[in-house]
């Protein structure tokens, strides 16, 4: 069981067909490892409605760069961080383009919804990088 965190709070993850990048043909949902190159999805981004990018551990930050690149490449569907990220990272996840995270139950138990909401409330504030890029 896993939990999906968004700005709206916790919701249970539903069963969906999600394939790995290597197995992607005409499906609409794909899982990326944090070693996958987002450029491999160029030309197929329009068919996708969900991309999850793996965080094997909260301190492995490769998926942040991948999310940013997917948005730069024009992906507009749902984008989730998949794995044991922590609430303190929520604002940063949102800033690079994730819509939220799909976290394991034990993380959800340790950091209840209010801790994520606390970070969700003001993730656009103090976003100095966006301010400098304007």
């Amino acid at each position: 069981m896993t939990v999906i965190v968004t700005d709206a709070g916790f919701s249970p993850a539903t069963q969906r067909e999600i394939v790995a990048l290597a197995d992607l043909t005409d499906q609409t949902a794909v899982d990326l490892a944090n070693t996958d190159d987002p450029h491999e999805l160029v030309g197929r981004l329009d068919q996708l409605t969900l991309i999850r990018v793996a965080f094997p551990a909260f301190n492995d930050g490769r998926a942040f760069t991948i999310a940013r690149r997917l948005r730069e490449l024009g992906y507009t569907g749902q984008l989730l961080a998949l794995g044991p990220v922590i609430a303190d990272q929520y604002a940063m996840l949102r800033r690079v383009g994730f819509d939220g995270a799909e976290i394991p139950d034990e993380i959800a138990a340790r950091q209840p919804a209010d801790q994520w909401q606390f970070r969700a409330a003001d993730w656009k504030q103090h976003h100095y990088q966006a301010r400098l890029r304007a």
């Binding site: 690149r69 730069e72 301010r131 400098l132 890029r133 304007a134």
Partner: peptide, 14 residues
């Protein structure tokens, strides 16, 4: 080359 066009000049004003 990918990132440069995203900067619209706000950094130079600051």
């Amino acid at each position: 080359a990918e990132l440069r066009p995203l900067f619209g000049g706000a950094d130079q004003k600051l």
